[in-house]
C-alpha cells in the first residue's frame, strides 16, 4: 500500500473521533492525534482497535506507546503488514 492510500485509510478511521475539523481537513503525516485533532485520549484505544480490525493486525503495548501522530501510526501499520 502506498503512503497516500494508507493516509486515506487512517483518515477514515480517525474521522468519528476528531474534535477539530480544520486540523482534520489538513491532515498530513505530521498531524498529532491529541494536540491537533483534539482526540480525547479515551478514544485513542478505539482508534487502535479500529486500525487492528481494518488491517487485520495486532498491536502490542510497545507499538501503541508512540501512536500519538499519523506518521507513527503509518510506520507501525507498515511494519506489521510487512511482517
Amino acid at each position: 500500500m502506498n503512503n497516500e492510500a494508507l493516509i486515506a485509510k487512517l483518515k477514515a478511521i480517525v474521522a468519528p473521533y476528531i474534535q477539530d475539523e480544520e486540523a482534520f481537513k489538513n491532515l498530513s503525516e505530521d498531524t498529532d492525534f491529541v494536540k491537533d485533532l483534539k482526540i480525547n485520549s479515551a478514544n485513542l484505544v478505539d482508534i487502535i482497535l479500529d486500525i487492528e480490525d481494518e488491517f487485520d493486525i495486532r498491536l502490542e503495548n510497545e507499538d501503541m506507546e508512540q501512536m500519538l501522530d499519523v506518521k507513527s501510526a503509518m510506520n507501525i501499520v507498515t511494519s506489521k503488514l510487512n511482517n
Binding site: Y17, A42, N43, V45, I48, E52
Partner: peptide, 20 residues
C-alpha cells in the same frame, strides 16, 4: 470522564478493549 459522553463515544464492551 463525563459518563454520558463515555456511554455514547466509547464502547468498552468491544473485543480486546479491556485487554488493551
Amino acid at each position: 470522564v463525563d459518563l454520558k459522553e463515555a456511554q455514547n463515544a466509547s464502547s468498552w464492551q468491544r473485543p480486546r478493549f479491556l485487554d488493551k
